[in-house]
């Protein structure tokens, strides 16, 4: 555990030392969020009756999405990992006294959390300070906030578990780059990064909500914005836990096979 923590600290202070980059990133995410909200408002003005979420809800959704972008973004699948699997350098990692699966898992976790830690607070702070309907609302009730936190943690874990499963599958493909492209765009589409799931047609939405992609950012952001409540919210969180278990088990199994394959080939 200690080595993961020190890895995290290193990443975090590395991020901090590039202060201009940090400010630029925060500003970019802020403008991006603002544009996104302006876009949804444009649709709202046109036909308010057809809007599937509340205005405050979608605005909170967008701000939280921006604040925690690094936690859930599909493009955070690291090209270097794909590269090292392709050219076989990953074999060096096998010499270390760590299993590959937890190593890659922890590495992805540290990447995402350290990046998000730097940026989320300023974005949230700005968003809270914005006037009227444009701002991020305060959480409604301690219970729901607690559920939101739980769903956040599960969501990040599912995202990372999915990514690590993809790394494992990479050992068995001829074109890691192609796989990365496909997975990234599928993730973006199905996890609610392009448009939140409630905006899809009902039948589609019902299917999408069961998929593992929906267990990523979709659940926590919609719990916070009040779109998922009561039993529905609980069911969604349980589904997250289910997917986490499945993805970790699958990732672990595939990685074990990959390790055997590597050993047989001699790296």
């Amino acid at each position: 555990m200690k080595k993961y923590l020190s890895f995290f600290r290193l990443r975090f202070s590395m991020g901090l030392s590039y202060r201009a980059a940090a400010w630029a990133g925060i500003a970019t995410q802020f403008v991006w969020g603002g544009m996104e909200i302006a876009m949804f408002l444009a649709f709202y003005r046109e036909e308010p009756g057809k809007f599937p979420m509340t205005i405050e809800g979608i605005i909170s959704y967008v701000w939280l999405q921006q604040a925690f972008l690094a936690l859930f973004a599909a493009w955070m699948l690291e090209p270097e990992v794909f590269e090292s699997i392709k050219d076989g350098n990953i074999a060096y990692e096998m010499c270390r006294p760590m299993k590959i699966y937890p190593m890659l898992f922890a590495r992805a976790m540290a990447m995402r959390i350290s990046r998000a830690a730097l940026r989320c607070l300023p974005v949230i702070l700005f968003a809270v300070l914005l006037p009227g309907p444009y701002g991020l609302e305060a959480p409604k009730g301690a219970g729901r906030f607690a559920l939101f936190l739980g769903a956040m943690i599960l969501g990040v874990l599912v995202t990372v578990a999915f990514g690590t499963l993809i790394y494992a599958v990479t050992f068995f493909t001829i074109s890691p780059e192609g796989l990365r492209l496909l997975v990234t765009s599928a993730m973006d589409f199905f996890n609610g990064a392009i448009i939140p799931l409630p905006f899809f047609p009902d039948k589609m939405k019902q299917v999408m909500e069961i998929l593992p992609f929906a267990a990523m950012q979709n659940v926590p952001l919609r719990i916070y914005s009040g779109d998922l409540q009561g039993n529905g919210a609980l069911r969604a969180v349980m589904l997250q836990a289910f997917w986490l278990a499945v993805l970790v088990a699958a990732g672990w199994a595939v990685m074990a096979r990959a390790e055997r394959k590597l050993t047989v080939q001699g790296g």
Binding site: R9, F12, S13, L16, S17, R19, A22
Partner: peptide, 16 residues
């Protein structure tokens, strides 16, 4: 000037 250390990194965020 870029000094090592976690606290220094935080400080340089504001004033370099």
């Amino acid at each position: 000037k870029r000094n090592a250390g976690f606290r220094e990194a935080c400080r340089s965020l504001l004033n370099r």
